[in-house]
Amino acid sequence: MTKMNISLTVNGQVHEVEAEPRQLLIHLLREDLNLTGAHIGCETSHCGACTVEMDGKSVKACTVFAAQAQGADITTIEGLAEPGTLNVLQESFREHHGLQCGYCTPGMITRAHRLLQENPTPTEEDVRFGMAGNLCRCTGYQNIVKSIMAAANELNPAKEAAE
C-alpha cells in the first residue's frame, strides 16, 4: 500500500505520520499517536464518540481520512486541559454526574467545548440541539445537559450576574 507523509498539529504538537491515505483520522489518533481518548462507536458518523476538534470545527474522526487532515490543527480530549487536571467542562461533568461508562464522554466533552465557544450562553434547547450529534447509552442526557449548562454558567460570570 502506498503510504504518504501526513503532517498535522495535535494538541499543539506537530506530528509527522506515515500513513495510507485511506487510514481514518480516528485510527491515526488512536493507533499512531496513542491518543485513545476519542473512541469508535458506530463508524457511520452517527454516534459522535470519535469527536475531535479540527480547525475549529467539531468533526467525527471516523469519517475523515487521515489524508484530508494533512495540515490540520486538531484538539482531542487529551488536549483540553493539562494532564492530570480538569477544565471547567470536565469538572462539571464530574460534578453533575454527566457520565457513566465513560465511552461517549471524550466526544461529548470535546463537542461541548466547541458548542460553548460558539454559544457561550446557550439555553437548554440550544444544548440539546447542539449535542445531538453525540449519542450516549447510559445517562439519558439529562445530566449531560445539566453539566454543560453549569459549565456555561461557570465560564460566564457576567451571565450569572445578569440573572
Binding site: 485513545t36 481518548g37 480530549i77 470536565q90 469538572e91 465513560g102 464522554t105
Partner: peptide
C-alpha cells in the same frame, strides 16, 4: 470520572 473525563479510560480497543 477523573480518568474518564480526561479520555484516560482503558477500554479493550485501547
Amino acid at each position: 470520572d477523573q480518568r474518564f473525563t480526561q479520555g484516560r479510560g482503558n477500554y479493550v480497543d485501547d
